[in-house]
Amino acid sequence: MSVDKATVAKIASLARIAMSDAELERMVPELNGILNWVEQLGEVDVTGVEPMTAVIPNHLRLRDDVVNADPLTGGGKRDAVLANAPAAEHGFFGVPKVIE
């Protein structure tokens, strides 16, 4: 499979990365080079093989159902959460208007 400029533009839009025409043009052969190279995976017989989801056998834990079980990641951290926001207003994240 290979991608054309329109497909790359669609992927870039899905990935929310603005790209100029020139950037899209440059990206097409680069992505096709990589995609053509990974095509070789199609030649492997994977009959009966389950896709790997956990590399080392491990059980998923639930944390204790306790408020602020770990104070570091618990609640009451509004100012710390907002400390690096490019625009924090009135204790919230500020964003451009999203309704007309």
Binding site: M1, I11, L31, P51, M52
Partner: peptide, 21 residues
Amino acid sequence: TYVLSAGFYDAYYTQAQKIRA
């Protein structure tokens, strides 16, 4: 984004996870 997008997920991502196994 491309290998996870609708229509390509199995051909690329699932295949790669099987090969990882």
